[in-house]
């Protein structure tokens, strides 16, 4: 196998080149042990289909989303302006990210601060690759006859109306896609949005991720597919709490595709 290419934009620019698309890794994708695997899986796919991509590497910083949602508008705008300076400095036109929170912020909230880019979520990017035949899923294989349920990320679904792309990616795997009772526009949150990821929940009689995990387990799916780092953490914790981690896997879309491709 060829050497894995993970160019930074700075590398490319030094060589007088530019990436067609910037992969915005996000903080979870960079630091979270579980989600780093998603980053790696996505980079493997990008390499396999020879996408001219790059990452910001050490130059990437938090989009500011958690600060903004927790009320700290100053900090959000500081982060956003600094990021826009970097992105514009490199004349970035198109961004793909595996984090719906980064996706929402870059796509919807940066334009008002002067940052205008074409932003896609990796589920949309993967769907495009499949539709264009760049990623060919032969069907059969290890997913044949397996049940997968998809947990909608709120920041992808309701916040941005992306419901079909992740489902089409899963359907291409030839697995049986089973829906939870609350799905699409009625999907139940994993409990981590709106900066909840960064604090304990308020007093109540149940954790939200347990409620959601119970619903996912009720589908009897072998795999709970997610498309968001926070959903990944919350659903994985939920499955562990229910002591089902041996029989039920929580996987990101990119991981499922990479596995299927033997990457």
């Amino acid at each position: 196998m060829n050497e894995m290419e993970i160019p930074t934009v700075a590398d490319l620019v030094a060589k007088g080149e530019r990436p067609d698309v910037l992969f915005w890794v996000g903080c979870a994708g960079s630091y979270d042990d579980r989600y780093k695997n998603v980053t790696k899986a996505f980079v493997k796919i990008l390499n396999k289909v020879k996408i001219n991509f790059a990452v910001l590497g050490p130059e990437e910083t938090c989009t500011g989303d958690p600060a903004r949602r927790a009320g700290n508008e100053f900090l959000f705008q500081m982060q956003a302006m600094a990021n826009i300076q970097v992105l514009d400095g490199y004349e970035i036109k198109k961004i793909v990210t595996a984090c719906p929170h980064c996706f929402n912020t870059l796509k919807n909230e940066y334009p008002e601060l002067g940052g205008n880019y074409e932003v896609v979520h990796h589920s949309q990017f993967l769907q495009e690759l499949i539709n264009e035949g760049k990623v060919e899923l032969k069907g059969g294989g290890e997913f044949k006859g397996k049940k997968i349920t998809y947990h909608d990320s709120c920041f992808l679904g309701r916040a941005n109306d992306v419901y079909s792309a992740p489902r089409e990616v899963l359907e291409a795997l030839d697995a049986e896609l089973v829906e939870m009772k609350r799905c699409r526009t009625k999907g139940l949150c994993c409990g981590a949005g709106g900066a909840q990821m960064f604090k304990d929940a308020e007093a109540g009689d149940k954790e939200i991720n347990i409620e959601r995990t119970e619903e996912a387990l009720a589908t009897n799916a072998d795999t709970i597919a997610v498309a968001c780092p926070f959903c990944m953490t919350m659903m994985s914790d939920g499955v562990k709490n229910k002591e089902k981690e041996e029989s039920v896997k929580v996987k990101d879309l990119a991981e499922l595709i990479a596995e299927h491709e033997g990457l």
Partner: peptide, 19 residues
């Protein structure tokens, strides 16, 4: 520059791990 207490210098470590 990240919501967690990780050093900025470690942000790109995943790339070396992958390689």
């Amino acid at each position: 520059f990240a919501p967690w207490k990780f050093g900025a210098q470690d942000r790109f470590n995943w790339a070396n791990e992958l390689k």
